[in-house]
Design a protein around this nucleic acid. Structure first.
Ligand SMILES: [Zn+2]
Length: 457
DNA sequence: AGCCTTTGACCAGCG
DNA sequence: TCGCTGGTCAAAGGC
């Protein structure tokens, strides 16, 4: 999917533009809660093995523009986009990712989700651990039918992604959405176009099967804000800090501490299998959410050095992210406490966490569409439209395991980790139709072979 | 004691 | 039907 970057014209561009507001990354409080999204939505996060200290986005990264612009919506459909958001170099990557985020934020779905932020108050205690994987459908965002109100936002000059921060984590954090939502000037279309264009190059790919959970957007928002400011500050607040030595240190730690464990996304996972998959460079591990009756599963590939190269979430959590303490109890306390809590391995996979979790409450439900009816938590809205779309998000964080359901924590973690790999986010859609299924109507106006990309754009 | 990881075996889907 | 592949199961062992 990465390759397939097509520019689509949005018939309703103007409409969307109006909705987009400014995209300052300022944190707003509410982020969308991370409630689950579609059921079967699967998000794959692919993390690049090579850690990157920081990602700086050019003033207008495609990614950002995506979010700002019409892309403002992360409409469920948005995920349908297939593209890698991060270029190999930090800058490029950041851009893509940022843009992606922006788009997500802008999307109607994201907005909705933004309202329900949860756990923001939590602190990022466990920055040290890295992330974990998240599962589930959380990663998926469904393009909603609703469209975001127009928001105008000033574009950030620079978009910097904390090395350790994984896309997933960003997505999960509720704050992400809330803050992001008002800042984007670009049109949805533009954003999409940019995203798709960059997708091929970006190391971080995001594929979404069904929908992207509101939490996801929220996190993106936070993430973006941080990036812009370039502050690695561990605190949840959008403080500025440069990728300092701190980040560096963490990274080094990561390298040394990487273990074969699921990334921490706030949920507890149990590994139930490992296999070498043809075509995959590294063995794939299979994890299940340890929460009773929770159908969420995730597959992750980790490189020899422990870096997560790919994470795929399937399903939605039918429960909230366990409290840190609780997590330890539920899962393996000793292990979680000991290793998981460290931000060393921050993984992008956290998407699944909030995102996957679908709340029974109306808000959440409205925000996300679900393909997974198993959980029963999905709201009717979720089902609408893009339920079929499978979105996969691939990110390449360094190693990171994100362990935080809590946005704040993630943020901190992210900021702390500067070594994150280039996050590549690619949104894939099953088909062209799916791609289009973001609640908007698109008209293809051209196709071209772009240098460096085998696939026509 | 409980939970997790490991790992080989088993099963299902597909060509 | 056979072989391949991906996904899951479940016993064994460790923490
Ligand atoms: Zn779960």
């Amino acid at each position: 999917m990465n390759d397939a970057a097509e520019k689509l014209l949005c018939v309703e561009e103007e409409r969307e533009r109006e909705r987009f507001g400014t995209n300052q990354m300022a944190e707003n409080g509410g982020g969308g809660g991370g409630d689950g999204v579609g059921e079967e939505t699967a998000a794959a996060l692919r993390t690049g093995a090579a850690p990157r200290p920081t990602i700086a986005l050019p003033p207008r990264s495609s990614f950002e523009s995506l979010f700002r612009g019409g892309a403002s919506e992360v409409s469920p459909g948005p995920l349908t986009l297939v593209s890698s958001f991060f270029a190999e170099d930090a800058d490029s990557e950041c851009r893509s990712f940022t843009q992606l985020l922006v788009g997500a934020i802008n999307s109607p779905v994201a907005r909705r989700a933004g309202g329900a932020a949860k756990e923001q108050g939590k602190e990022a205690e466990k920055l040290s651990d890295g992330g974990e994987e998240d599962e589930g459908g959380g990663g998926l965002i469904r393009s909603g039918h609703n469209r975001p109100p127009s928001l105008e936002i000033s574009r950030p000059q620079i978009f910097t992604v904390p090395p350790g921060l994984s896309p997933a984590g960003l997505l999960d954090s509720p704050a992400f959405f809330s803050s992001a939502l008002g800042n984007f000037a670009m049109s949805h279309q533009e954003a999409l176009a940019q995203v798709t264009a960059q997708a091929a190059h970006s190391p971080f790919t995001m594929l979404t099967k069904a929908e992207i959970p509101s939490p996801f957007s929220t996190e993106l928002t936070n993430f973006s804000s941080q990036l812009i400011q370039e502050s690695p500050k561990p605190t949840h607040s959008t403080t500025k800090s440069v990728e300092g030595s701190e980040t560096f240190n963490k990274k080094s730690q990561l390298n040394t501490t990487v273990v074969d464990k699921p990334s921490h996304d706030g949920y507890n996972w149990r590994k139930y299998g490992q296999k070498i998959v043809k075509g995959s460079e590294y063995p794939r591990s299979y994890y299940k959410c340890t929460h009773p009756k929770c159908p969420v599963k995730k597959k992750l590939e980790r490189s020899v050095d422990g870096q997560v190269t790919e994470i795929i979430y399937k399903g939605r959590h039918n429960h909230e992210c366990p409290e840190p303490n609780k997590r330890t109890k539920e899962g393996n306390p000793s292990r979680l406490n000991g290793t998981n809590e460290h931000l060393d391995n921050l993984e992008p996979g956290s998407l699944g966490g909030h995102g996957n979790f679908s709340k029974p409450n109306n808000e959440t439900a409205a925000l996300f569409s679900n393909t997974d009816q198993e959980s029963g938590y999905g709201s009717p809205d979720q089902l609408s439209g893009s339920s079929d779309v499978e979105e996969v998000i691939e990110s390449r964080p360094d190693e990171g395991d994100e362990d935080e359901c809590d946005p704040k924590r993630r943020k901190m973690a992210a900021s702390s980790q500067k070594t994150s790999n280039e996050p590549r986010i690619i949104v894939q859609t099953r088909s062209e139709v799916d791609l289009l299924d973001d609640g908007y109507r698109w008209r293809k106006y051209g196709q071209k072979v772009v240098k460096g990309n085998p696939n026509p754009r």
